[in-house]
């Protein structure tokens, strides 16, 4: 069988012990959460860590709690299946529940975690392959090589952020808590991303994601997630869009937001969506026209690259369709939009 490289595994029971191990390893360690992304990547020879620090046995890392102010605090090791099935998440953060329900297939949602999905490595058809395969084309910019096969002549890796939950969390205004030894910080998820496909996060590799906080949403919050993929199960997104509408007491749109994933290195919000939707009443022609305008904004701004398999042209053509359907689903309290 395809072999894992040799490494040492530590399974600390406390956060502190994990932070110590990571600090001691001085960059030679990697963190393993559910392992559903890291282990295939290790089998592909994409990393060769001396040490894996497992988060599986850290106390308090699993769970979904409602804070007094109505915010949700989700432990990073909470399985995606649990996020998807949580009535609390379904009620307060529907886009996140929907996105989590569409990650991979049933077994991988049992194993995969929300923290792991947020911290997912970027993906590319030229990168997520075995060592033999990558060697046969002379490697690529992201790993072991100097050439980009997506953008020929490109100097910047454009491997795709492929985490379904990222755009959902962005539309929910989530913040992420990171820790390393003697250092804590909280970062809005929207500020996490950098445009570098090799490492698309503005955090260091020895920083540990310790919690995902979803602030209390307005009573008029509506959210949905839509996903394009080849099959109805197992596959990573070819395009993922989360939509949020905030309705006022009359039911008119007060605020709105769309974020997309599986485009380029980082998940991307669409600018100007609130402006075109504000004041419209879902269910009216006026709202439908505004949704169409928002979909066209998405079409102009979100440009999938030939990084993940399949036609980039097609993925782009699906941007306005998915945007429209996801916004409409959010307005109706429905979703997920899947299959497209």
């Amino acid at each position: 069988m395809l072999r894992l490289p040799s490494f040492q595994l530590e399974e600390p029971k406390s956060l502190y012990a994990a932070l110590v191990l990571l600090a001691e390893a001085k960059g030679e360690a990697m963190v393993i959460a559910g392992g559903t992304d890291l282990l295939p990547n290790l089998k592909h020879g994409l990393f060769a860590p001396k040490l894996l620090v497992s988060l599986a046995r850290i106390e308090g890392f699993v769970g979904i709690e409602e804070e007094p102010d109505g915010a949700l605090l989700v432990g990073p090791m909470t399985p995606l299946a649990r996020v998807a099935e949580s009535e609390l998440v379904q009620a307060k953060a529907p886009a996140l529940a929907q996105a989590a329900s569409l990650v991979a297939g049933p077994q991988l949602r049992t194993q995969g975690t929300l923290g792991g999905n947020v911290m997912l490595d970027t993906r590319c058809q030229w990168y997520n392959q075995t060592h033999f395969w990558r060697q046969s084309l002379g490697y690529c910019l992201k790993k072991d090589g100097t050439a980009c096969h997506v953008v020929q002549g490109g100097k910047k890796c454009v491997a795709a952020a492929s985490n379904d939950t990222a755009p959902a969390l962005m539309t929910l205004g989530a913040t992420l808590r990171f820790e390393r030894l003697n250092e804590k910080r909280e970062l809005p998820i929207k500020s996490l991303w950098s445009p570098d496909g090799i490492w698309n996060k503005r955090c260091d590799k020895d920083e540990l994601l310790t919690a995902i906080r979803i602030p209390a949403q307005d009573p008029g919050h509506r959210g949905a997630y839509g996903k394009l993929r080849t099959r109805e199960s197992i596959d990573f997104p070819l395009l993922g869009l989360a939509a949020r509408l905030t309705l006022d007491h009359e039911g008119r749109v007060q605020d709105a937001e769309i974020s997309g994933v599986a485009l380029a290195a980082r998940p991307s919000p669409v600018r100007g969506v609130a402006d075109v939707l504000r004041g419209t009443l879902p269910g009216t022609a006026e709202f439908d026209e505004a949704v169409e305008a928002a979909a066209q904004l998405a079409y102009k701004q979100l440009r999938p690259l030939d990084n993940v398999p399949g036609s980039a042209w097609y993925r782009r053509e699906m941007v306005p369709v998915l945007a429209r359907r996801t916004l409409q689903a959010a307005a109706k309290g429905e979703g997920p939009v899947h299959p497209l």
Binding site: G105, N128, T230, R231, E232, S233, I234, D235, P309
Partner: peptide
């Protein structure tokens, strides 16, 4: 993964 076999769905 890249050569997708149809699932139940």
């Amino acid at each position: 993964l890249d050569y997708p076999l149809a699932t139940t769905l």
